[in-house]
Each structure stands twice: as C-alpha cells, then as structure tokens.
C-alpha cells in the first residue's frame, strides 16, 4: 500500500540485507532507499524544510545506532523506522513549543477570498490527478492547525499510506487510538476546508480547532 508515499518494499528488502552486514555503507543504501518517505513524513508533520531536515537526519542517525538491536523481519522495518522518525518529529515539536517559533505561523495565513476547495468529487481520485497549488496550500494550512498527535496520525495513514496497524506501531499507541485520532484529524480538516471554501467567512471561527489541543 501507499504507492504515493514512495516506500519501495523491494528496494528496502534488498537494502536491508546489505545493512545487516553492519557497516555504514550497507546502512546508507537503506538510507537512500527510505529517505524520501521519511523526509516526507517529517516535512508534513513539521511543516518546514529546516525542521524536517533536522528530524530526518536525527531519525537516520538514531536508526543507525540502534539498527543492530532491531530484530524484526524486513516487513517490520517500516513501522520501526517510522516510529523513530515520528519520535524525532515529536521531540522537535516539543522543543519548538518551548521556544515559540514563527515557522508554523507562516502556514497559518490562509487567503479566504480565493477559489473554494474543490470538494465536488466524492471519489479520492486517481493519484496522478494533481492538486492545484491553492488546494495544496490549504491542506497544508489545515494540517498545521491540527495538534501534533492528530497530525502525525493523518500523515502516517493518509499521506504516507501506512495501515492502521503500522501507524499504531509507529506511534506506539493502541489501534483504537490511531482510529480515533485519524477520524478527528480528518473531521477537522474537513471542517477547515469547508470553511476555506466559504469566502464570506474569514477565518474567525478558529475556535473550531481549539478542542483539538487537549
């Protein structure tokens, strides 16, 4: 699953056996095979290139240091690596919350008077069908408004295409927690995008998002 996430199962399996040799070069083939989806996760969770780069690098360094301790089969590697990356993201978010940063604020400036989000098609649509730049920006702004746990859930499941089980392993929570975080994240995004689609209503109803941050 998750062709859009760029996770290459065959490539990972091949690189995995190389990495098992225990040297840096072997591990780096694994890095090269997986860095796109991992960076994608970090970027969508953190919202900017700088933090995403930091978290990605931190995740791979940590993975390198603890790879010998990973005893699971190659199929479990994905959830394992995503878990390390998720933790790196959450750590960075915690750090950033302690010293307020402007990086997320940049994403919170939607232009309410632009074309409404196209919600007409009820079908997820073919993945080749590109989103408009405006839609991308709105979805990103909506993601930025979610609390970190919900954002991580929705990025893991919908953007990265992890299964519920994999996402639960990556977030180290129960399956039910993944489902409820995911459904709340989707609902908030739905409301956000619906609001964005109403030019008459400027983004004053921001209180809608407040219950998401317990």
């Amino acid at each position: 699953m998750g062709a859009s996430s760029g996770w290459d199962d065959d490539g990972v399996r091949a690189a995995f056996s190389l990495a098992r040799r225990g040297d840096v070069r072997g591990f780096n083939t694994l890095v090269e095979t997986t860095q796109r989806p991992i960076y994608g996760l970090c970027y969508r969770t953190l919202g900017n290139v700088e933090d995403a780069s930091d978290a990605t690098q931190e995740a791979f360094l940590h993975a390198y240091r603890s790879f010998a301790a990973f005893q699971g089969p190659p199929e479990a590697f994905r959830a394992w690596l995503y878990r390390i990356a998720s933790n790196a993201c959450l750590d960075l978010l915690r750090k950033r919350r302690r010293r307020p940063s402007e990086s997320l604020d940049g994403m919170l400036e939607p232009d309410a008077d632009e074309a409404p989000f196209q919600i007409a098609s009820g079908d997820p649509g073919p993945e080749s069908q590109a989103l408009s730049a405006e839609t991308i920006r709105r979805v990103e702004a909506g993601l930025a408004r979610l609390n970190p746990e919900q954002r991580l859930a929705v990025v893991l499941c919908d953007v990265q295409g992890l299964s519920y089980d994999e996402a639960a392993a990556a977030m180290a929570v129960e399956l039910g927690t993944v489902k409820s975080r995911l459904s709340r994240a989707r609902a908030h995004l739905r409301e956000w995008l619906r609001e964005m689609g109403e030019p008459a209503e400027p983004p004053q109803r921001l209180h809608l998002q407040s219950p998401t941050a317990p």
Partner: peptide
C-alpha cells in the same frame, strides 16, 4: 483523497 495526492516534498 487530497492528502493522498499531496506531492512528495
């Protein structure tokens, strides 16, 4: 659907 089609950075 929109989330799945978000372009990879």
């Amino acid at each position: 659907g929109a989330l799945r089609r978000l372009p990879a950075p």
